[in-house]
Design a protein around this nucleic acid. Structure first.
Lengths: 118, 118
DNA sequence: TCGTTATATAACCAACGGGCTATGGAATGA
DNA sequence: TCATTCCATAGCCCGTTGGTTATATAACGA
């Protein structure tokens, strides 16, 4: 499984709430490191580290604006993650269908003398 | 965002190729621990640990069949992860549109190649 | 040139993750 | 009863992660 490294990096990047918040913030526009750090009760180097993780996953790219190194969201890697999940969409829908079937069974069974359980 | 713990657990669970393989395996039917361990060059306790991570994320539930503790895929938590990603689907489509716009710009303005602003 | 701002890097630390081996315990079956 | 099978748990190791503070670097503005 050599090609799964990309997916690893993406899911690892997504597995931290701070990083997801950074992604959410960047979705509404590019931002500098200090801008990104501002909402968090966390030091600037900590944010820089998180950004590095996001960069490693290809989820952010950096620009240059004077001393600032603005971050831009690159959402493309999310697509691969999404595709992986979509592969199982059918499966959780199947779960719902199973539930639907059960509910229907209970509903039709009402007409019969035996009460449905619970 | 207190409820992000669930999402944390889900993405953490997905961030390992072995665990994704286990999920893929379970999508084609329930399996015991030894059945799940068989394809991997890894000890049985290691697989048990992975299963525990998946359980913690609510992605697998356990049954009982004699000595076996069969695992079943519970795909529902994947839905929340998928919803989170879908929120940015629009954004990566926007990226493509931006690329299109850039390409058009370059094509029409051949004489003055305007740098894209960052 | 000098101070300020923005960011990165280094060094450190505690906690966690993912692997191992060894062992324990429950259920089965002879 | 006893061996076997399936699985979980306990320790242990070691590399990684997520945070810290302190310091270095880089670009700007006066």
């Amino acid at each position: 499984m050599i090609a799964s490294d990309r997916l690893d990096a993406t899911f690892i990047a997504l597995a931290d709430p701070t990083r997801r918040a950074i992604i959410a913030r960047l979705a509404s526009g590019d931002a500098s490191v200090t801008e990104l750090a501002e909402p968090f009760a966390m030091s600037q180097p900590a944010i820089s580290k998180h950004i590095k993780v996001l960069e490693r996953a290809g989820l952010v790219s950096r620009g240059r604006d004077a001393q600032r190194r603005p971050c831009r969201l690159e959402a493309k890697p999310l697509e691969a993650a999404n595709e992986w999940l979509e592969r199982y969409a059918q499966f959780w829908e199947a779960n719902f269908q199973r539930l639907d079937a059960l509910l229907n069974e209970m509903k039709t069974a009402k007409k019969k003398p035996a009460r449905p359980k619970r």
